[in-house]
């Protein structure tokens, strides 16, 4: 019985496939009609031994449903007039894909990278006090080092004791986090930062940074180098080399610039260094027991490097043509 059904299926489906819509009714009578072979076979199923009955029944019903579907399909081809005017080469209707800003994408990429290394994300306010932005980071008033940070100041209220400002870097988050947490500390702090300076293709008064801080017992320059190198490779590619060279930042000692060998040039990528003992102390951490490193990179700069963007002002331009490229 099972073989007969299978044989019937093979014959029928071949014939339907070769048939024209006009044959539909004839074939329907032949294969599905009351006197059709299939109908007879199905009618014989109850006579089968009970062990076989279920399986054969299922096969028979499946064949019946499938033949019904195929015959309907065959007939429906006839029902529709041939669509001679259909042009398969017609262009698709424009679909709009939304996009995240290139700086969001760059930030997200770095967050993902550092989260993979166990770094948490920390944040701080954009309006800061002089203490958090400068003094606690070992940048005293009137020190020539402060000239490196041209500052937007907030108009003080009458009788205000502290001066507020728009943070010139994300480094205040270091202090805030240290004050609230004990080592081991492993954070990154992305955020918006501000410099009081005229804007041109390479300078923006509003820009974005990502700060990193790692503190534990026995952290060394060798650790700093390894983590930076890993970051560079994760960000720009496995083959990209990095190197450190001496620099100066008031909140790290020793301080370094990181260069990367990228597209045939050594390019300055970011600053970093071992957290200055004074800064550790200001964060409430015993510099005799713990050491750590910090780094800060310009997200705008990274995005410009990555995508080859030549004008930093494009980021805040709101130009959709620009944003569509990412």
């Amino acid at each position: 019985m099972e073989d007969k059904l299978k044989q019937l299926w093979l014959t029928a489906q071949a014939e339907i496939a070769a048939a024209s819509p006009a044959d539909g009714e004839t074939l329907r009578t032949k294969y599905l009609g009351r006197k059709s072979e299939l109908n007879q076979l199905l009618g014989d199923i109850p006579k089968l031994p009970s062990a076989e009955r279920a399986a054969v029944g299922e096969l028979g019903n499946h064949i019946k449903a499938e033949l019904t579907r195929r015959l309907e399909e065959l007939v429906s081809r006839q029902a529709k007039p041939a669509d001679d005017l259909f042009d398969p080469t017609i262009p698709g209707l424009t679909q709009r894909l939304g996009r995240l800003h290139p700086l969001t994408q760059t930030t997200d990429q770095l967050i993902e990278l550092f989260q993979g290394l166990g770094f948490s994300v920390a944040e701080g306010p954009e309006v800061e006090t002089e203490d958090y932005n400068f003094n606690l980071l070992n940048i005293p008033a009137n020190h020539p080092a402060r000239d490196a940070w041209d500052t937007f100041w907030i108009k003080p209220d009458k009788g205000a004791k502290e001066r507020a400002l728009l943070r010139t870097h994300t480094s205040p988050v270091q202090i805030r986090y240290m004050q609230d947490h004990r080592p081991p500390i492993r954070i990154i702090a992305p955020g918006r930062t501000f410099r009081y300076e005229a804007e041109n293709a390479t300078h923006s008064a509003v820009f974005y940074q990502l700060e990193g801080l790692l503190i534990d017992r026995g952290i060394t320059v060798a650790h700093l180098k390894a983590v930076i190198d890993l970051m560079v490779k994760g960000l720009l590619g496995e083959g990209v080399k990095s190197r450190l060279r001496p620099s100066f930042f008031p909140f790290t000692e020793p301080s370094f610039e990181v260069d990367v060998w990228f597209k045939g040039h050594w390019l300055e990528l970011m600053g970093c260094g071992m957290v200055h003992p004074t800064v550790l102390a200001n964060g409430g951490i015993d510099a005799n027991e713990f050491s750590g490193f910090a780094f800060g990179l310009g997200l705008d700069r990274i995005a410009m490097l990555k995508y080859g963007i030549d004008d930093i002002r494009l980021f805040l331009s709101g130009k959709l043509d620009f944003l569509e490229e990412f």
């Binding site: 790692l214 060394t220 650790h223 180098k225 390894a226 890993l230 450190l244």
Partner: peptide, 14 residues
């Protein structure tokens, strides 16, 4: 600075 080796810090997993 090129004399310093690269050593990964070993912090507890978190």
């Amino acid at each position: 600075t090129d004399q310093v080796p690269l050593v990964m810090p070993a912090l507890p997993l978190a």
